[in-house]
Nucleic acid binder design. Structure first.
Lengths: 242, 242
DNA sequence: GCGGCGCATTAAACTGTGACATACGGGAGG
DNA sequence: CCTCCCGTATGTCACAGTTTAATGCGCCGC
């Protein structure tokens, strides 16, 4: 049995904007279920039509595109609170894949109700547009990192961004956050080779800026990491949760 | 004096989805004016709050991010029909810059009416979300090009995409489209150096695949160009115009 | 307990792309 | 008409990052 939205485990984090009672009621009707999936489970596939959207409640995943020869570009890392599948939901065409990295718990929404949401709940519609604009902004930052920054700058940018996001989800503990991805995942996110990513992470370890080991990232000085990654803006302090 | 939306010069292109009379009426109230700007004019600046959104009616521009040391990442090329400023409009925070490359004619919309649009015109709100999702999809493709493709593959991908967009705006003429950008702009879009971009374009000219000269791009075989650029999906055949 | 697999690490060789320098043509301004 | 600037073009060399190969460690299944 699914959790009622009003009992959602993450919605009371200060990160997430509050919802009114009518909005909560609508979201409960919009939600068709909940699913828990194992690691490495595909959630959405490019080219496939999915009748559902999802919010990640727990666990980690990633979004990626594949080239025909197997090269993979990781577009972003999915963290708790992230909406999955809006692009397919709105454009009726999914051009990337989403899969879990750890076990995940997902809220499942019915895409056919999307139009009802737009008609009857303009604030929720506004929130969806905000989420899409936020994704767009992140991809712009990623494009800038890959296109213009050195490997070291890019790795610092990525780790700083991930750390800040997990911090705002209150998943930090003594300057350490869970990061259950492989080095190949970060390499594919930054357009680097695995070996070069490994060497760059070793440099950060040596300089005692950041250490990523055993599925956790420890950042000794987040400001130094942000500086090295040329991070020039703050993440929004508040965001909607679907 | 501004053109009434119903007399918009580009809205009757088959590319753009039709609008109902109430939608047209609302857009005319949403529109506060029209402006014509000279080449190299900033339209939106990162960090600035802009009270306006724009639709490009005519002319070309680009969206880009700057690093502190002057390195520039071009995020995308602005073509007629493009909406400018949605990110700032929705997130209240502009993280990239937009400027004209040629003289441009822009429809100007009042951001304060955005909430009215969401409340009273769900189809238009849906269209805005569609546009944002479409931008997101494009940035994902660009990320994949820069991160995983060789210089030649990336240049082919970019030229093929631009050609197809201009073709759907009916700006093609005997396999040639206007492309009033500099080579440095394409280099900055693909994370390449100017020299290497120049050499890659020379290769394409030698192979008689595509020729970019004197502000025009001529593509002898768009399918070959798409193949070389590993283009694996079609652009949507129809899109909303704001 | 052993073998195999997946991931992280490291060394060495290689290369696609960057950096630097120079030349040319066209356009604009004086 | 001349000069200067901008953009394009090309050659040469350097290097950040890639590729290839090998090793070690931990975990899982038999």
């Amino acid at each position: 049995m699914s959790i009622k939205c009003r009992f959602c485990p993450i919605r009371n984090l200060p990160l997430f904007s509050p919802m009114t009672d009518p909005e909560l009621s609508f979201m409960e009707s919009f939600k068709v279920g909940e699913m828990t999936i194992q690691p490495n489970t595909p959630i959405l596939s490019a080219g496939a039509n999915s009748p559902q959207l999802f919010t990640a409640l727990k666990g980690f995943g990633l979004r990626y595109k594949l080239l025909e020869d197997g090269r993979r570009q990781v577009l972003s890392f999915v963290l708790p609170g992230d909406l999955i599948g809006l692009q397919a939901g709105v454009m009726n065409q999914m051009t990337h894949n989403v899969e879990s990295t750890t076990s995940m718990t997902l809220c499942v929404f019915n895409r056919n109700e999307l139009w009802t949401l737009f008609r009857n709940h303009p604030q929720r519609a506004y929130d969806l547009t905000w989420i899409s604009a936020s994704e767009e902004r992140f991809l712009g930052e990623a494009l800038t990192a890959i296109g213009q920054k050195s490997a070291l700058e890019s790795v610092c940018w990525a780790l700083a961004r991930i750390y800040r996001r997990l911090e705002s989800l209150h998943m930090d503990e003594r300057r350490s956050v869970p990061l259950p991805y492989r080095q190949q995942d970060l390499a594919d996110a930054l357009g680097l080779s695995l070996v070069h990513t490994n060497k760059t992470l070793a440099k950060l370890r040596e300089q005692q800026v950041a250490t990523w080991t055993e599925g956790r990232l420890t950042v000794n000085d987040i400001f130094a990491l942000e500086d090295m990654g040329l991070v020039d803006s703050q993440l929004p302090q508040s965001r909607p949760l679907m």
